[in-house]
Computed example of a mutant assay.
Amino acid sequence: MILQQYIQEVLFKQRVCVVPQLGTFSVQHFPAHYNDHIQTLTAPREQVMFTQQWQDDGSCVEWIALKENLVPAVAQRKLEKYLEELKADLQSGKPVVLPGIGQLQGDFTGNIHFHAEELPVEKETLDIRPIERTTDQRSTNTTPAFVPPPAPEALEPIMTEEVEDTLEAVTEESGFKWWWAAIPIAAIVIGLAAWWYLSGISKAVRESETLPDNNAAAQQQLAAAAADSLQKVLADSTAKAAITPITYYAVVERYKDSSAAAKMQRKQAAWGKTLVLYKRDSMFRTAVELHSLAADTLTQRDSVRKIFGSKVFLEF
């Protein structure tokens, strides 16, 4: 039967298997249990449980559709057919065997009884008895535990008059030897420091005597070079301005509205006069773009005035 195969495959994979209109199978884990009355330890086990309560999650229809390569609607009708066959067997009192799981058997009242099959992971119950400890009479006559002796204390040396005299003599002699070696070294260091200080002062005096003359000459040379550079830059800029053309505009009209300025531009274009449109100081201007030398700007303005009138002025 297809439903028996469905229960076997889904139950041990998901530990829960829902059969619509029949019930729910589940695998439950029971931990180890110790019974202190009969002193036995029951090993942990897995048990298959069954209840007639169910909530269809669509898994059974989906499994049948994949198994028999059917669309969901046809798989639903197939499921209803399989359920009718299973219910007919249960109503007749015939046990329905689920290999590896158990048996289902119905009664005349419509209830379904499940007899689970023992899973192979179940282990036997162990008998455990408590261990009683007996006291040994000989343990009462115990010998005292070994206690290690305390560590010996450090002894200070005994200071006698002869030892004190010897130590004072050695200390005075060693101090005298150190001072005898340090005196000539200190004299050499002081002499070198004095020579270095005097030589530095004489060098600074010589440099201060020659520095004013050198500074005055250097300042005069720098001033002359700066003047020559400035004259050269001015001459180059004047020459470039004389031979380089510039771009500027001969303004014909000014407008507050851009649409009026654009209308004027189209009108002049229809007459064959090309004007440019730009904005400056919140005013829209129609103008003629000019290119000429700086010396020819007035001549170009007069030429534009002859065409558009005396209101033409230049903007750079």
Rank of each mutant, 00 (worst) to 15 (best):
D127K: 15
I128D: 01
E132V: 10
T134F: 04
T134N: 03
T134P: 00
D136N: 05
Q137C: 01
Q137I: 10
R138Y: 00
S139G: 00
S139R: 03
T143W: 01
T143A: 08
P144I: 12
A145S: 11
F146R: 06
P149T: 12
A151Y: 00
A151T: 07
A154I: 10
L155E: 15
P157D: 04
I158F: 09
I158K: 12
T160S: 04
E161W: 02
V163F: 05
D165G: 14
D165E: 14
T166A: 15
L167F: 08
E168Q: 06
E172C: 00
S174I: 03
S174T: 05
S174D: 06
G175V: 07
F176E: 13
W179C: 08
A181V: 07
A181W: 04
A182Y: 06
I183W: 06
P184F: 03
I185R: 09
A186T: 08
A186K: 01
I188Y: 01
I190E: 00
L192Q: 05
L192S: 08
A193H: 02
W196P: 00
Y197V: 09
S199H: 10
S199P: 00
G200D: 14
I201Q: 15
S202P: 00
S202N: 14
S202H: 11
K203G: 09
A204M: 06
V205F: 05
S208N: 13
S208A: 15
E209W: 03
T210C: 02
T210R: 08
L211E: 11
P212R: 04
P212W: 05
N214E: 13
N215Y: 12
A218S: 07
Q219W: 01
Q220A: 15
Q220M: 11
Q221T: 08
A223N: 04
A223F: 00
A224L: 08
A226W: 00
A227Y: 01
